[in-house]
Design a binder for these strands. Sequence first.
DNA 1: CCGTTTCATGACACCGGTGTCCAAATGGGC
DNA 2: GCCCATTTGGACACCGGTGTCATGAAACGG
Lengths: 350, 350
Amino acid sequence: MAKQKQDEGQAPKLTINDIARMAGVSKKTVSRVINRSPLLNQETRDKVEAIIRETGYVPNPQARALALGRNFLIGLVYDNPNVQMILSMQKGILEALHGTEFELVIRPVDRGSNLVMDDIKSFVTRQRLFGVVILPPMSENDALARMLDEEGCRYVRMGSAVLDDPEHMVASNDREAVADAVRHLIAQGHRRIGLIAGPHGFRSAQERREGFELALTEAGISLPRSLIADGQYTFESGLSASESLLDLSPRPTAIFASNDEMAAGVLYAARLRGIAVPEELSIIGFDDTPVTTRVWPPLTTVRWPIVAMGRAAALKLIGTAIGEGSEVNEPSMFSSTLIRRGSVAPPATS
Amino acid sequence: MAKQKQDEGQAPKLTINDIARMAGVSKKTVSRVINRSPLLNQETRDKVEAIIRETGYVPNPQARALALGRNFLIGLVYDNPNVQMILSMQKGILEALHGTEFELVIRPVDRGSNLVMDDIKSFVTRQRLFGVVILPPMSENDALARMLDEEGCRYVRMGSAVLDDPEHMVASNDREAVADAVRHLIAQGHRRIGLIAGPHGFRSAQERREGFELALTEAGISLPRSLIADGQYTFESGLSASESLLDLSPRPTAIFASNDEMAAGVLYAARLRGIAVPEELSIIGFDDTPVTTRVWPPLTTVRWPIVAMGRAAALKLIGTAIGEGSEVNEPSMFSSTLIRRGSVAPPATS
DNA sequence: CCGTTTCATGACACCGGTGTCCAAATGGGC
DNA sequence: GCCCATTTGGACACCGGTGTCATGAAACGG
C-alpha cells in the first residue's frame, strides 16, 4: 500500500520537521537557520547547517510563499514583434535574478485582443506574482499600470522615455540617439534624408521620429511630408514603405529606418532596384540586432543597452526585497550609441 | 495601526473563508465548487459560483500547491545559441499552456560551467517544478535525464533524433530532412558539394552530417575530407569555415551549412570574394530563421516545426495531469520541409 | 549571592487551501 | 411509517513553512 506521495520510489521530500528532529531542535530553530536570523547560537547554527548540507534539504517554496504572504516569482509581460529584444531582455532580467531565489515567469500577450487587460490581471493575481516587468508597447499603457497598482503588484515598465515615477520605469533615450544618428548623416553631407517611421501609437516610434525631426531642424533642413513613410517595425513593412521613398525624384540620399528590420527592408528594396548601398543610398537602422551584420553591406545602426536595462528593471523590482534599508539606485535612463558599419557614405555628388 | 498586509491600501485578498462566509457554507464546500467535485447540489454550486464571480475571488496558488503537493509550473531549460529557436519553442509551449493553470518558468544554463547539473537540480527541486522541457544540446545529456528521474521531476527532451522512450522525447528527423535538401542539390546537377558541419558533440550536428553523407552515398558521389569544414553554428564560424571550402580548386559548386547562421556566413564570404550566388555557388541552410529572407539572395533552407514541437512537448508534460484517463497521443517525431528560395541554381557549366 | 536583564530556544497558532471522515438530510422500497 | 442507501455539507487534521510570545538559562550588576 504505497503512499501516493512516493508512487515511483522517489526519495521522499525532506521537511523542516525532519531536519529539526535530526538536529534535535525545534522546527522554528531550523527556520531561523534558513533565514539567517541573527539571534542564534553559532554552535546550534553550525550543527543545523551541517545536517542541511548532508541531507540536501531544500525548503518547500510553496509553503514558504504561503507563510510569508508573498512568493518569489517575477513576471515578464510582453507583446512585441522584436524577438531579439525579448530574448535580450530575458537575459538581462535573468542575470539580475541569478543567485537570488527569484524565478522568471514569462507571459506573452496579444495586444490585438481586448482581453489583454483581463489576461494580465489573471496572470498577476492567480500566481500572486511578486512583481512584473512590462515591455513596450504594453508598457506604455497607463491603464495597465493603474490596474497593477490596484492589485498591489509591483511593476517596472521598459520604454523609450520616462513616463512616470522613475521607480517604475527604465528607459532609453531614443530621441537623442536618433538625433545623433541623423546628425551623423548630415555631417556626411546628406540633405535629403528619408524617414521610415514606426507604428502609430508606439512611444518608441514617436520618440525616434522626434529625434529625426530634431536633428533636421537643428541643421535648418526642411522636411517635406513625402520624405516620411509609415512602417510597422517589420521587414516587409520596411520593404514596402521604402518603395515610395525610392520612387521620389530627386531620390533621398539617405534613409533612417526606425528599426533594423525595416532597415533591412530598405536595403532589400535598394537591391531589387539596383541602387548601390552606400554609394547611392545611405541607411541607418535602430536596435543593433544580429541581422545588421548578416546583410551586405553591414548596417550602421543605433545600439541600446537592452541587457543592462533588463538587469536594471529586475533589480528595481527585487531591490526593495533584498537591499536592507539601502535605497535601490539603479539608473532609470540609459543612453544609446551609434554603431558605424558599412551602410553610410557621403552622398554621390549630383 | 495598519496591518502589514495592506500597507498600501490595496484591496485585501479574499480567502476561501470569506467566500464560504458570504455564501453561508463551509470552506470545504467552496473548495468543492472550485475543484468541480461532482458530489454537490447544483443549487449550492450556482450560489457559490455567483459569489466567486461577483467578488473576483482567486484561490491562492501557493496554498493550493502546498495542499496538493504539486504546483503548476513548467520549467524550460536551455543552453542554446539559437535565439530564434528558443523563442519559437517558448511560443509553442505557451500555446499549449494557454488556458490551463500552468505557467512557464525559464532557465537558461551555462553549458560551459561544470555546475550545470547542480544548477538545474536546484532549479527543479527548489521550485518543485511540475515538469521541465529541455532544449538541445542539454537534452542530449543522459545524466541529466537520470537526475530528473531521481528527483521525480517529469521531463520532455527536444532533439534531432529519438533518444529514449518517446514519452520523454519530441524530435525532428534532421537526417532525412538534410538528405532531402542535398538530394535537391544533386538533382540540380551538383557533384562537388561542401558541408559545414555543426559542433562536435551536438546530436543535431551529427544527424545533419549523416543526412548529408547519406544523400551523397545514394548518388554514388564520393566525399573527400576536404569538402567538410567544422563550424560552431554561429555566423562567424560559418564565415571562416567557408574560407577553406572556397579556397579549394576546383571549388565546390554548392555548400550545405548545418544551420542558417552559418549559411549566412557562407553567403557573406562569397560576397567578400565576389562569388555570385547562386550562379557560381549554391547554398542551403537549416532552420528557416528570418535571416534567410533578409539577405540577398534569400536562402533556400530546411524548415522544422519548432512551434508545433514545443506545443507537443508541453502537452506531453501536462497531458498526464489534464487528460482524464485518455492517453496522451502527441506525436514524438516531426518531419521538416525544404523551403526553396533563391540560393540554389544548377552549377555553372565548367 | 540574589535580582534583573539578555539571549537562545521552543510551543503554538496561522497562512489558505485540500483530504478524510462522519453526521445530517434526503429519498426510495417495502 | 420505518429502515436503509445515497447524497450533501461540515468539523478537523494536514501540507510545510513563519510570526508571536513565553520560558529557561546564562550573564551581569550591585
